[in-house]
């Protein structure tokens, strides 16, 4: 479903350039649960942003569901983000003025879905992350774990093909982190493709596959590298 071929991402920096990603080739099949680990600054977020069509490769090919999307126009990429890709961030990024329900409805608002259907689908999404009793609370009335679960409900409410989570538990205590990972894994078991950036080896251990990044390059166990090279 996801296929990166020789992807580079470079940033101009003073006279020279910074290589955030170097020649990354990676395939992820539908329904997989992939953990992306590596030290800070190794390019994990950059890779996730490219996967999520928030950023474009400087060089290389990115095929999503069989389509070259790295060079699609902005309008089509935002449609992809709206309908096929869910995002979860370390800092939740809930809008403070909206309730949990309102936040979950947000993607549907821009997706042009009618009000009644928005309500109904948001309610279902909140129920699936166990947050229905908190639907009318604003983010500042929710705990960190609850906020992240609201963010997950928002990420899946449009029924995306893949959920990309950038250190979703990085800001949570262990108990909340486990709750959140439990929710994510449950969704993965129902067929949602899951790519989770983490630097917690315990959490990474839950994944079917672990991809290591060092200095912008894939550096994982040899068998992973081999499989990606073959792909």
């Amino acid at each position: 479903m996801i296929d990166l071929q020789g992807v580079w991402r470079t940033y101009p920096m003073g006279e020279g350039v910074v290589h955030a990603l170097r020649d990354v080739s990676l395939s992820i099949a539908a329904g997989e649960h992939v953990a992306l680990i590596g030290p800070s600054g190794s390019g994990k977020s950059t890779l996730l942003h490219i996967l999520g069509c928030l950023d474009r490769p400087t060089q290389g090919r990115y095929c999503f569901e069989g389509r070259e999307v790295g060079s699609l126009p902005d309008g089509e990429r935002s449609l992809l983000r709206r309908n096929r890709i869910g995002f979860v961030f370390q800092f939740f990024h809930l809008l403070p003025r909206l309730t949990a329900q309102g936040n979950v409805e947000l993607p549907m608002l821009f997706g042009g879905i009618a009000r009644d259907e928005r309500r109904e689908r948001a309610t279902r999404a909140l129920a699936s992350v166990g947050l229905l009793p908190r639907a009318d609370h604003r983010p500042d009335q929710l705990s960190g774990g609850e906020r992240q679960r609201a963010a997950i409900a928002r990420a899946v409410v449009m029924n995306p093909a893949v959920l990309l989570a950038d250190e979703p538990t990085g800001n949570l205590d262990r108990a909340s982190a486990q709750e959140v990972m439990g929710v994510l894994e449950a969704m993965n078991r129902q067929g949602l493709t899951l790519v989770v950036v983490t630097h917690d080896p315990v959490l990474a251990g839950h994944a079917q596959r672990v991809v290591h990044l060092t200095d912008g390059a894939l550096s994982g166990p040899p068998e992973v590298l081999a499989s990606t090279v073959e792909a």
Partner: peptide, 13 residues
């Protein structure tokens, strides 16, 4: 951050 989020959620320009 809100604008970035809206874009990530698929809001078109």
């Amino acid at each position: 951050a809100e604008i970035g989020l809206l874009k990530a959620l698929g809001a078109a320009d």
